[in-house]
Design a protein around this nucleic acid. Structure first.
Lengths: 196, 196, 196, 196
DNA sequence: CATGAATGAGCATTCATTCAT
DNA sequence: GATGAATGAATGCTCATTCAT
């Protein structure tokens, strides 16, 4: 009786999550069926349940993975000494990957109804926000950001703009991309810079 | 020889749309079934199809109605001589009506995949944006807004912030509501005001 | 209180039957809905039930009417002193009216299952057959038809060929129409002519 | 790691087709519901769709199977050195199996409207007809059949009579079966025999 | 007469999940 | 581990028929 190989098991889980990601991006959480995911993962339907207890478990795990990766990208972004340039680069990247936008939109919609997803999203939001707030505080010390702003609230606002920026192309696919991004940058700059 | 009473017909349609609105808010566009909507509207399933050709027709009509109402509210808001106070009031209102937020989130998610919904959303977006741009241009003439900003792009950016602001409570239900709104106001003010 | 006008009533019935005929020809007895028939007859659905008790009643009445008309045509055909030429002309006519073929095919299929339809069809068959048999007997007296044939059975066989001839174009739409009809004529001639 | 057993799979498909055959014979293609077929096949509705993509796929497969079997019977019949005796035997057999008649009638009706069915029927018709034509040509060489007849057209005509003969009992269930068959035989004989 | 509102059972099909092998 | 057979409730939708007006 062979013992299970945890590494192999984990690898299989990742395969499923990647397949699910592609399906959910294409058809949404409700629109994609387990059969779709199984086909995409080259796996029988029964076997998928060996790795995940239910479709919802796959959704949760996939969202968690996606948000964790988003967090990592955010960390990279923070290494850029200029906060605004980093943000700017990240928005540009997100716009290009239309897929992520669709998925994030679905995730926000689902979080409004499904408490499990809501909790995952909330944990991630708090993490990113505190990271951002720390950054803002440092910038305030260096005199680069208005010291009158509460760092946590300012961080929440910046995140909101981030979300809104992603919805822009959904609202109007023919939007002038470069210019709108430029203006988002201006919005940030003017919001954050210290009063003269 | 009773002739059809268009008023009664229209009233029934509205009843269905309201019932559908409640169902969609509760369970999402995909999550709510026609049976749910029929039950909510106290109507047999066959009869609903007397008024709407399909579930999608209900979704479209309901979205169109919702967006038309949003447009009306926007117009009211514009009558407030202070653009930012108007915006501020509207965000406050939207935050309170959690229902509208869920629905709008679903709409954005659906628009990312369903071209019919995407077109409806786009038409509405262009309408609201041009209204906002007109307002901004007037404010520029009066010297209240930075004349260096392109009114249309600035309007698009403000709408994006608007969307993002609505997602804030979904991301973190325990957010300090008053303060975050205050900061959104600050964000707007600093973005728009003319350079000294 | 106005008395009903039987003529008007009958006219309305005929309108419905004609509309139903078009619908059934287009979509079959099961495929055509009462709503289709009502629309085609420019009549409300409730009103149709004023003239016919059910969809089946419409089907029966329409079939009866169609068969009665077919009988009339048969009578005309019999006036042609040459039986075979008459038959030939009728087959040519039936082929051209593809519509009648579809309907007749449906009728035979329905008669195999629905005793009401079976009875109608049978009554019509017996009528046409006896007419044909009478004709054959006369021709036998004149020495134009083999006197060894039992007129009734020969009539039944000719009717069968008639049915089969109608199915020919359904079986192969690219069939050489003229030649096949010519051969049916030959078939009849050789079957009926007296032995030398 | 159990692999799919194609034999078992095929057996299941045949079970469904047989069950469907019984249902369609009883109630027609439109009259029989998937629920009926599932019940007749002792199978859940979901499972049937594991084997057939749609009701139409079942209809097509069943018709194809039926026609293939008819073709086989035709081949047997052709082995009888006397064409007419073979035909005669086949008509006798077909008459006895009322079920096949109903189904064939439905098939012809459906073929008049459904191009998929029409194509299947046409392919089968051409196959049977060419077989018959070959047989006729050989008989012509032996001097058993009128050499003046075009074999292909004559074959088409014989098939038509075949169809018509099957409809005879539908038209009149009390028909003298033996005698009518005898006359069909006479019809064939006189049509085919060489002129003296 | 005439309308169209209203019903509710029925339809073909889908899908998350379970289970024997 | 891995397969795919099997389930059955649920889905969006249709349709013959009834009924108040």
């Amino acid at each position: 009786m062979r013992k299970i190989d945890p590494a192999k098991h984990e690898e299989r889980r990742q395969q499923i999550l990647e397949a699910a990601g592609r399906c959910f991006t294409r058809d949404g959480f409700r629109g994609a069926s387990m059969a779709d995911i199984c086909a995409e993962a080259n796996m029988s339907s029964g076997h998928v349940y060996h790795y995940f207890a239910s479709k919802e478990a796959i959704i949760s795990a996939m969202i968690e993975g996606n948000l964790a990766r988003a967090m990592t990208r955010f960390e990279c972004m923070m290494r850029n000494p200029n906060l605004i340039d980093g943000f700017f680069a990240e928005i540009k990247r997100a716009r290009r990957r239309q897929a992520d936008q669709s998925l994030m939109q679905d995730m926000l919609a689902e979080a409004g109804r499904n408490p499990v997803i809501a909790d995952i999203l909330r944990a991630h939001t708090l993490g990113v926000r505190s990271m951002l707030a720390t950054f803002i505080r440092k910038a305030q010390e260096k005199g680069q950001v208005d010291p009158g702003l509460d760092a946590d609230t300012a961080a929440a606002v910046l995140l909101a703009v981030f979300d809104g920026a992603k919805a822009m192309t959904t609202r109007d696919p023919e939007l002038n991309d470069a210019q709108s991004r430029e203006y988002i940058k201006t919005l940030f700059t003017r919001f954050l810079r210290p009063p003269e």
